[in-house]
Design a protein around this nucleic acid. Structure first.
Lengths: 166, 166, 166, 166
DNA sequence: TTTT
DNA sequence: TTTT
C-alpha cells in the first residue's frame, strides 16, 4: 500500500540464548525471545503489579544475525527495531496456527546492545571479546525484501516454558 | 522488567469498518484491522512485488475508542502507536490459540487520522462532521493498566477473508 | 557511544517545495521544511488552540533525495524517519549559530509519501506520474556515515519568514 | 495540523547531572543533556570513527521530572520519548538565538532508566533506593499542553563547554 | 560532559 | 510556509 509504515521498537531482555539456524549458504538466521514488562500500582489495593510480554524476534539481516549469534546471551538487554509479520503454519496435527514475529530484515532494522553483560546462566563459553561490542548495527547492507528460508515455524521447539506464548 | 519499551508504530489503512464492543459501563472497545504493505522490485526478474501485512488493533483508551468509533471507516489511513500483546484463548474445539494484537491503552498510545476521507464502500451512514477531525488524540486520560473486558478472542468473526490471518 | 539511538519520526506537511543542492558528483542533497502541529482545548477558556512546529530536514541518502526532488511539493504530507544533528556555523557577521536538523542518511532513514497530491501552488509542471508513487523508500543503499557536503548552513537563505526558526 | 506526529526517541547517556528549576508552585522542571553517538569504520582508511551528538531535553511532565530529579545522575543511560520544539530567545547582547529541544510533556512522553547505576562522579549523596527504579514512567498524568515556565533559555549557563552546541 |  |  502506498505510504505505509510497519515498525516495532522494543527494549527488553533475552529470555534465553539466541537460537541459530543456517540458510543453505551458511548464513545465520537468528531467533530471539525478548521480554518486556509493564509495572503499575493497582488503583484499588495499591499493590504493585507486573505483566511480562514475550516477543519472538527473527533476524534475517546478515550483519545483525552475526552480531546476535556472537554477542547476545540470555539476559542481555537489547534495543530492537523491526517490522511485524504474521505467518501461518500447520502443526503436526494438521491444525493451522498463526505466529506473529518481529522481523529484522533490510534497511530499516536495528539491533543494539544496551549492556555489556554476557548474560546469565547460559553455560559453557559465552562472553564476547571484540572492542566492537555495544555498538549499534544497522541492517543496511542486506537487500530489502528477502524472503524466508522456510515456511515452517521458526523454531518448532517442544521445550517451551508455559509462560512464553509461542 | 526494569527499563523496557514495547512500542508499535503503524501507518496503514483500515481493511474494514471499526468493530465496536461495549464494556459493562457502556464504554466502547474498538477493534481495527489495519493493512500495511511493502513493495519492492524483484532482483532477478525486475518485476514489482507487493506483500500486505494485516494487523489487529484493539483500542481500550476511552478517548481514542470514541474517536475511532465516530470517525474511522474502511479505507481510512491512520497513524497508530500502541504496544504488542499476545493473548491466549481456546477455540470452540478446545484448541489453544494465540493472537498478537496492537493494544492502545493508557498514556503512550496514539491514533491519528491521516486523511479526511470517510472511507470506501462501507455503506449506510458514514462520514464525520465535527471540526475536530484529522487531529491527533492521545490516550492520556485513561488510566494506564486497565485489564481486558473479556478473555475471548476480540472479535470471534466467522466471516473472515482468507487473506487476513486472524 | 555504545548502544545509543537517535531517531526522529515526523508526520507533517511541507511548508514549501523541496530545496535542492548538488554535490560535486551531481547527486542531490535536499532540504525540506516540515510543519507539525498540536491542537488542544484550553482548560480555562475552552477555546481551541494550535501550535505549529517547523522542522528542517536534510536528505543525504541518494535514493531518498531523488524521490524528494521528483515527487514532493509544497503541501505534501510525508512520514519521515531520521536522526537529530546540530550543526554550528558562523553567520556573515561572524556570529556563531547552531542549527538542529533531522538528517536522512544511511540505513535507518525513511521518507514516505502519505498523500497522492502533487502539492499546491508550486507553479509550473509538477505532479508525478510513475506508478511508483506513494511508496516507502528506504535509504538502505547509501553508505551510512557520509559526511556533509559543506559546513555552511544548508540553505543560506536571506528571505526567511520571521516565524521559521532557522 | 490535521494528522501530524512529532516524536523523538533517544537512547543515550547523561553528560551531567540533571538541572532542576522550580515552577512557581514548586514543581520541578528538569533539563537533561544526553549524548548519543554513531560509530563506523572509515571506508578508505578502515579506521574506527565516532561522532557524538548532544541533545538538550526538557521535562515538564510532573511525574517524569520528579523521577529524573530523584534518580538520574551523570552517566546514566536512558530511553527518552518526547517531541521536538524550537524556541527563540535573545541573548544578553540582544542577539536572537534558536534552541531546539526534546520536550517531555503530556501523554506521549516517556523516560525510562536503562541501567541501575547511580551515575559517576556527581559527588555527594546520590544513589537511589526504592524498589521502583529502573521502571518506565509515562507522563500521562500531566495535562497535555502546558506552557513553558519561562521564555528565557532553559538553563542560561555561562560555563558552557565548546563542544556542546547549546 | 556521557559512553565503549 | 503547511495542514484542518
Amino acid at each position: 500500500m502506498a505510504g505505509s509504515v510497519n515498525k516495532v521498537i522494543l527494549v527488553g531482555n533475552l529470555g534465553k540464548d539466541p537460537e541459530v539456524r543456517r540458510m543453505q549458504n551458511g548464513n545465520p538466521v537468528v531467533n530471539l525471545t525478548v521480554a518486556t514488562s509493564d509495572t503499575w500500582r493497582d488503583k484499588g489495593t495499591g499493590e504493585r503489579k507486573e505483566k511480562t510480554e514475550w516477543h519472538r524476534v527473527v533476524i534475517f539481516s546478515e550483519g545483525l544475525a552475526k552480531v546476535a549469534e556472537q554477542y547476545l546471551k540470555k539476559g542481555a538487554k537489547v534495543y530492537i527495531e523491526g517490522a511485524l509479520q504474521t505467518r501461518k503454519w500447520t502443526d503436526p496435527q494438521g491444525v493451522e496456527k498463526y505466529s506473529t514475529e518481529i522481523v529484522l530484515q533490510g534497511f530499516n532494522s536495528t539491533l543494539t546492545m544496551l549492556d555489556g553483560r554476557s548474560g546469565g546462566g547460559s553455560g559453557g563459553g559465552g562472553g564476547y571479546g571484540g572492542d566492537d561490542m555495544g555498538d549499534s548495527f544497522g541492517g543496511g547492507q542486506s537487500s530489502p525484501p528477502q524472503r524466508r528460508v522456510a515456511a515452517a515455524p521458526a523454531g518448532g521447539r517442544s521445550d517451551m516454558d508455559d509462560d512464553i506464548p509461542f
